[in-house]
Amino acid sequence: MKQNFTVRRGALDGVEAFLSVAEHRSFRRAAAELGVTPSAISQVVRALEARVGAALFLRTTRSVGLTEAGERFLSRAKPAFEELVAASELARDLGQRPAGLLRLTVPRAVVPILLEPLIASFCQAFPEVEVEIAASAELVDIAAEGFDAGIRLGQFVAADMVAVRLTPPFPFVVVGSPEYLRRMGRPESIDDLRQHACIRIRRSSGSIAPWSFVNGNKPIEAIVSGPLIAHDFPTMLGAVVEGMGLAQVPEPIAAGPLKAGKLVHVLERFAPMAPGVFLYYPSRHQVMPKLRAFIDHVKRRAYTANKTRIHIDDK
């Protein structure tokens, strides 16, 4: 049975004053340590005793001692208060400089092509930050699951999130291996996919994603079939390289095999554009220094990459 539990308002009031008086056995020295008047210390301690329901100190004109109740209160309150102070200092430290554990949820496909160089340079720049990457196709609630931020395709980032662009927009392309295309022929239209083995992907919702195209300004969804259903893009890409069929994937993921000649574009004029990949997090007002450092690092890398691309294009 669930029990209601609340901390009484002001339950910790006066504990620091009590501990100081108990340590010094003096209201005057405790007041000097805490920077208040002896009468203020006396009032705070009396209020604490009233809440506890027992006298904690024995007072005379010459000395201050602890009652039995005071001794018992001290034995439990001192270590508890020291833990609270330590917890506050630890939290304050994490709130003032980049340190601690930075947890990111990301699709597995972006780890080698986007995150590996980025994480390596970030860890070198901020050695007090530990980075944990949870690679999954699932769209998780980052706040509920304890993540600092996530990385996803722009169309999957919720509207209430703050988003930082990691890549420019890119097309979703259909690719196949040269061996498969020699064997089965090259599709020239969307309808030609009916005669082809198409590697599909199952969404985190459980549905199998249709293939999306554009014909002019008109979006088209095609229901395709084939021998394999994958749960992520790298698995799809591996199957296509092995000649199992065609697949529709984000172009940056296929860039390496395309450049190496292991894959070939098909149906290029029908390729739809994706908004790109974004880093996202819940609120600008809740950003810890470790995440702020990562966001700034991402922006600097993106700026440097854009400058390099502009210089190359200008040549």
Results as ranks from 00 to 15, higher is better:
125 A>R: 10
102 L>I: 03
88 S>T: 08
75 S>M: 11
101 L>T: 10
135 A>Y: 04
136 S>E: 08
130 E>K: 08
71 E>N: 11
75 S>H: 14
110 V>R: 01
108 R>Y: 00
95 G>S: 01
132 E>M: 07
98 P>C: 05
88 S>V: 11
105 T>Y: 03
131 V>Q: 01
117 P>Y: 02
95 G>M: 00
101 L>P: 00
94 L>M: 07
132 E>S: 10
103 R>S: 14
87 A>C: 06
67 T>P: 08
94 L>C: 05
87 A>E: 14
104 L>I: 15
87 A>V: 03
136 S>Y: 07
91 A>I: 09
125 A>L: 04
138 E>N: 09
93 D>P: 00
80 A>H: 00
85 V>W: 10
126 F>D: 03
131 V>T: 05
119 I>Q: 05
74 L>P: 05
71 E>P: 07
81 F>Q: 06
76 R>F: 12
87 A>N: 12
138 E>H: 10
120 A>S: 15
132 E>V: 10
85 V>E: 15
100 G>C: 07
125 A>T: 08
113 I>S: 07
120 A>I: 07
89 E>L: 14
120 A>L: 13
100 G>N: 08
119 I>F: 11
94 L>G: 08
91 A>N: 09
75 S>I: 11
110 V>P: 03
74 L>M: 09
66 L>W: 11
107 P>G: 06
138 E>Y: 10
120 A>T: 14
